[in-house]
Amino acid sequence: MRGRGLRTGLKGWGGVGAMAVVCALALTFALLLPLFPSGGDGSTGTGGPGLAHGVQARAEGGCTTPEMEAAPEKQTLPPSSADGATIEKIKSRPGEKRKLIVGVDQNSYRWGYRDPNSGEDAVLEGFDIDLVHRIAKDILGDPDAVQFKAIPTDQRIPAIQDGRVDMVVRTMTINCKRLADVAFSAPYFKTGQQVLAPKSSTISGYDDSLAGQRICSAKGSTANAKLVDDQKAGDLVSSAKLKPTVPNQLDCLVRLQLGEADAVVTDGALAASQAAQDPTVELKGEPFTTEYYGVAMKKDADDLVRRVNQVLVDYRKDTANGWQASYDRWLSATLDEDSSTSEPPASPEYLRKS
């Protein structure tokens, strides 16, 4: 399928018909961009009515103190430009294989997605993709020295642990549970969980208006963990139905459009992009968590973690082609022209000791 031929049909990215074409396009390009298999559905919890607005869902594993649990985004190593064993291994790949292998999304509008108007190759682009190119340029001297691999939400950590990718740059929230399995860079984006629902819906936010509603979330996502934990704790109305769970977040928008779900819970940054894809849905209520995206890598890839943190420092300082320029290009239209609420800490803390 050629992207150029889809130009008229996909203009605006709105409506069920357009989204069906988007999904078909994604399936077509799965042949070009390796896709990892996903697991089955997650389980739901039970609990009583109520509502809790917290920082992050309580998670055990990578955080061993209350201070670490309160700010998992600080559990990373100080920046450094030095090469180490991990980076040397990447640089020593022969010939055409001398590339940074990165797990990404290809279906998140303006984050990592295939632009159907970009010609027959329908190249990957978006905010996350810009960051990947910047990291590749720093490590390998060529922003295009990247092998992209499409990964479902629930396969991000296994792909890193199995060594199928060097890193994952895929709107991945830093939290304690994940810190037990992978290492993270310093934050590169700030967001929070939010509710997405049809404009005609009586749902008003993350509150008792979710009673009896079918809530879609991606398996392995922080949204799914938050929903399950809150319902078990009695902080989410017990009659809310925590299904369907899907491999990829975009699938929730399709389920919403097909009437198979009543609401979606996901990061507000992703929800805003989905609302831009379909003018019949909107964000409901305010964000009810505070979360940070980070670049995920193997736990023992210390030199790569330090190098990515140095890249992030330089990326924020670059006023011409850095973080702000990428935000203005990709996200200002779906979030806000003022990027202040999305900016990571201006002076990140690097509290991980080893």
Results as ranks from 00 to 15, higher is better:
G163C: 11
E67H: 07
G112F: 00
L100F: 07
L242T: 02
S108T: 08
Y109R: 10
R255H: 08
V305G: 04
Y188G: 10
G42E: 10
R114H: 10
D303Q: 05
T65C: 00
T76Q: 05
D278M: 04
Y113F: 15
S238D: 13
L236G: 05
K74Y: 09
R156I: 06
P72K: 03
G50L: 06
A240D: 02
L227Q: 11
L242D: 04
G103D: 04
T86V: 07
D230E: 14
A20N: 12
P34E: 00
K97T: 05
E60Q: 09
G47F: 04
K243I: 11
S354M: 10
D208N: 15
R307H: 14
A20W: 05
A26L: 13
S221I: 02
Q193C: 11
R7E: 12
R329L: 10
S118P: 02
T334N: 08
K219Q: 14
A296K: 07
A275V: 03
Q75G: 08
L258D: 00
V102K: 04
S239C: 08
P66C: 07
A325R: 05
A57K: 01
Y315A: 01
A218E: 06
Y188D: 04
S38R: 03
K99I: 08
T46S: 15
G212F: 07
Y327P: 05
G141I: 05
A296S: 11
S239W: 09
V228A: 13
L196V: 15
R329V: 04
Q147P: 03
V254L: 14
V123W: 09
D235E: 15
D251K: 00
R110E: 08
F288G: 03
G103N: 02
V132Q: 06
N175L: 09
K11A: 11
L227W: 04
V21G: 05
G54D: 06
F29Y: 11
R58F: 13
T319N: 14
G40M: 04
T266Q: 14
R316A: 15
E291N: 13
C23A: 12
R170M: 13
R306V: 00
Q106Y: 03
D144M: 11
H53L: 15
R164F: 11
L10K: 03
M172G: 03
A183Q: 14
L312C: 09
P34H: 00
T191M: 06
L196Y: 10
D162P: 03
I87S: 01
C23Y: 09
R255E: 13
D83M: 07
I139G: 02
R214Q: 11
P348S: 01
E286I: 07
A159F: 03
V132F: 01
I101S: 09
I87H: 06
T341D: 14
L51D: 04
Q249S: 12
K299I: 08
K226I: 00
P279V: 05
W323C: 13
T65N: 07
G84Q: 02
R307S: 10
A346K: 15
